[in-house]
Computed example of a mutant assay.
Amino acid sequence: MSNAFSTGYGISSPTSTEPGTLISTPSTSRANSTSLSSSENFRSGPLNLTSLSTTSWRQPYASVGQFATIEPGLVVAAGPNGLFYFKRIRDHAATPWSESRPLPTEGVILNESTVSGLALHDTGLRLHLCCISGGVIHTFYLTGDNNLLPDRGNPPPLGKHRAMGKPMVVRSGYNRLSLVVPCQSGGLLHTSGSYYSFPTRWERVDYLATDLGVISGVSVTEVRTHPHDHEPELVAVCISEGQLHVVQGPFSLGGGRPPSRCKWGGKTSIRILQPGKVTGNPVLITDDNHGQAQLDLLVPSAEGGIFHFVRTHSAPNEWHMIGRVAFPQDTPPASCLSFYPRSDTRGTRELHAMVQIGGRLYHTKTTNDQLPWYNARLNPIVHPGPFFD
């Protein structure tokens, strides 16, 4: 990637004062510049530095359908021609976005028309990609040189069930992974595999939360009531008919001789009250401080914007809405959402989000602790190049 702040403009070359706004530099002939007396002095003053616009010469990103992201800034998305990725380059002061690169898949068509959801999960050993298309779960892993290879292990044993929506892959227990995805006929499908095994060998599927009917979106996180618990609980927030519901229960690690399979005993507990319907996919974030877990829940509003709820450790059955992030007027609702926490240089916890609206990605973040979304902005992610957040 070329340096976004390089100089060397030619005569009459375009510069920019705002993204996408080109201003021609006044042309000056060499003859006039050399005819000035060498004794004349130019008046000193500040340089009028401008940002370099990428819109006139960098290829924009393709239209984005479903996407998944993971720190430190990797985005995998389903576009018109298949899966592609791009990432933040954090060792540069301008933290630019890279060029997009395709992720070829073997013998299966995965694009924005066929993919209903993507999930990324980093085990520390490999980066795994889970994709839902045509009711089938496809699993891949990304190599160090960003090749996408199929996971040749046992596929998740769905049996007669068909998956839909956006999958969730979370750590459950010290050495387990849980895969949770909505079922086309209603309810949730859950299976578990070893965190360290490769290829991943998924166990028999649990079929649960059927009382909620068809679930359009789900987010799952692990919660421990004590930091040394060997069997945690899994908490899921589901969207059914535009309403938010909680499914929660213990994750049993099995045991005995021979060892029994792991199982999630999730049961529908409560409905989260909300002002209007929700859409897209919810996102659960756990801030666990020695077992005193606080959950942040963020979900797109069907009327536009994002609802932000909080559940504290002391009141596990109460979800408090602490804000509604309003989008600019006439902005459509978000269809895909991804949030992740990050601590800034002062140790303040921030929530960063990528939001898909109308085929384009946007970035936003919280701005302070007392009023988290005060002065927050939606910044479009359109081209490779500098991005200041």
Rank of each mutant, 00 (worst) to 15 (best):
H320W: 02
H363R: 09
P328R: 12
R162D: 01
G280Y: 07
A293Y: 06
G124S: 14
S338G: 11
S63D: 05
T364W: 15
G242Q: 12
V180R: 05
G135K: 05
V283R: 11
V310C: 13
V76Q: 00
H363Y: 15
C130V: 14
T123Q: 15
S301T: 03
S44R: 13
S197E: 14
L189E: 05
N281H: 08
R257N: 11
S29F: 08
F307K: 08
A94I: 14
H352P: 04
F388N: 14
F309T: 00
S13Y: 04
G305C: 02
H313Y: 12
L103A: 00
Q243S: 10
G193P: 04
P19M: 05
V170P: 11
G385N: 08
V355H: 06
Q66F: 03
Y141R: 01
T50V: 13
A353I: 08
G135I: 04
P333W: 15
H228S: 11
R261N: 09
P316L: 12
G73Q: 09
T17C: 10
R90V: 08
T34N: 11
A353V: 04
L295F: 06
L337Q: 05
D91E: 06
S56I: 07
H138P: 00
A4N: 13
L208M: 13
Y85K: 00
P250V: 10
L52D: 08
S2G: 04
P155W: 02
V223T: 12
K365M: 15
P156K: 10
A68T: 01
T268F: 07
S63R: 12
N154P: 07
V235L: 14
E318F: 13
F198L: 05
G265A: 03
G305V: 02
F307H: 15
L295D: 03
C130I: 06
E18G: 06
W97S: 02
V76Y: 01
G153L: 10
A163T: 03
R311M: 11
V136P: 00
G254V: 08
S27E: 07
R324W: 01
P156V: 11
H161W: 15
A93S: 12
K166V: 11
S2T: 01
G186A: 06
K263V: 14
T21P: 02
A68H: 00
Y362D: 10
G134Y: 03
G79N: 06
L295K: 08
E99R: 10
Y207E: 12
W202T: 05
P300F: 13
